[in-house]
Design a binder for these strands. Sequence first.
DNA 1: ATTCATTGGCACATATTCGCACCAATTATC
DNA 2: GATAATTGGTGCGAATATGTGCCAATGAAT
Lengths: 289, 289
Amino acid sequence: MNDWDDYRLILAIARSGSLRSAAGELGLTHTTVSRRLAALQARRGLVFDKVPGGYAPSPLGEALIEVAQEMEELSLKGERFERASNPDLAGPIRLSLPEAIAQFLLLEDLVEFSQTHSAIDLQIETSSRFADLDRSEADVVVRGAKDPPGHLVGRRLFPNCVTYYGHRDYLASTPPEKLRWIAPSPEARTPGWLEKSPYPDAPIVLSLDDVTARHRALVTGLGLSRGACFMADPEPDLIRLPGSEPEPLQDIWVLTHPDLRETPRVRALMEHIIQAMLRKKDLVTGALG
Amino acid sequence: MNDWDDYRLILAIARSGSLRSAAGELGLTHTTVSRRLAALQARRGLVFDKVPGGYAPSPLGEALIEVAQEMEELSLKGERFERASNPDLAGPIRLSLPEAIAQFLLLEDLVEFSQTHSAIDLQIETSSRFADLDRSEADVVVRGAKDPPGHLVGRRLFPNCVTYYGHRDYLASTPPEKLRWIAPSPEARTPGWLEKSPYPDAPIVLSLDDVTARHRALVTGLGLSRGACFMADPEPDLIRLPGSEPEPLQDIWVLTHPDLRETPRVRALMEHIIQAMLRKKDLVTGALG
DNA sequence: ATTCATTGGCACATATTCGCACCAATTATC
DNA sequence: GATAATTGGTGCGAATATGTGCCAATGAAT
């Protein structure tokens, strides 16, 4: 009785191209995947051809891969129903959010939530990309976004604002023509950010994509940087550069999948995060500077 | 790795209500089904409540049953892709048709087809109801129908015609007031058939729903009957009752599922059946009487 | 061209799953 | 109410599935 699970096999091999990596995805060994594929093809016909570099689907394989993809969507839906089914404030929640928001904005609030609801297993997953809630990569996501997927439900908050900062000692001890920038790598930079800064002619001498690393470099006085107000304004040694005003980036959203919208623990977490964020609106939008 | 096959378990229990009958459907023993259900519920939560008389789905169970139903449809689609994938005139075909058409009309033609295409495994399943091709109950169906499912593809042939018959010796030796009818059970009778017959006042003394059994009784001279021309006209000892003309019942169709329409062996079988039926049109429509 | 990493296949061992036989409880039939 | 049929649960053994360790082949990196 493995007919339907064979579709998982088909999908894993299709996606990864090798028995060993498919085995990794499935929680098996490559030996088992090899046997299962052989048995499957003995029953149903050729599904994958062995080609140089891996496995390529046969025409039947192509058709079955599509069926498998739809089955996976159904399986994910079932998982959501399962996760949604607990009527108590208990059970697991996976929360996805940027590392910066986790560390510098919401950490205490999340700890507080966990302490208040000890039956809830809060699993915080920091990530730099938008978790796919359709694939159950998370139950709740907090993230700045321009146009999040329209079917997700939740709350659009306010913009994440940034402006230009320097360490007070660095600014005091560095002549203007010797100032230097710390910035993201070229492909991650916002167009025009440097031209709008108070020192557009200062060179970029340190490229750091990691937001928290960039913040650490700024706080250490290694150069100037454009940073999020909620990270920089609380630092007593960081001051805004002359004439710098907060500028909005993307709006921050708190979202979940529609199948989970009524789940009590998900509602409780989202409400808690939203209230916490609303209390810190002035900090996030730079209104305290 | 049984996650997706668990949906088969869920569906089987939902449909049958007991572990033993679910086990029958799944090809397992009730012991295995019991263990699998326990394991499933340990992982995912309560899916079925044990109630007097069987198992009832929990709210989560209801949701997962719907997912399971959709998975089953996908699985059936996959099966059709598998069956459709053979480019040769080889492999299995399941043909569903009424027992009467099988025995009295197409048997020789089907044997001929099998002999001509020895690599095709023709599995003839006689049935009194329309096979569900969406559920892969058959690959090809031959049947009289008023409105077959619109998405099936194939050929509408001509009507299956019936009229009134008696055995020549029975008619010769029985005074008119002693004549008797053999008919289907009351709920299976066509309204008005008796009134339109040459002996509307003769009583029905034998009710037989099985078409071939009714035919056997007629041929044996146990009474009068309304029967299919293709069954009765070839019998040398059966004669039409005075004034009886062939009347059309439902049209006969030869149909397959759209996913199988291009499959060579399916096309070959349907063409063979259609040609055989066209050669017997006069017999089926009673034009030979 | 050489070296390193990854791959698929295989013999053997281990773990897991399944079936059998039996029993008590429940339900259906008379 | 009695009897028969069907049910779910359990212990034990059999069957099946999976993992381990190893090897040769292939592909990637130097």
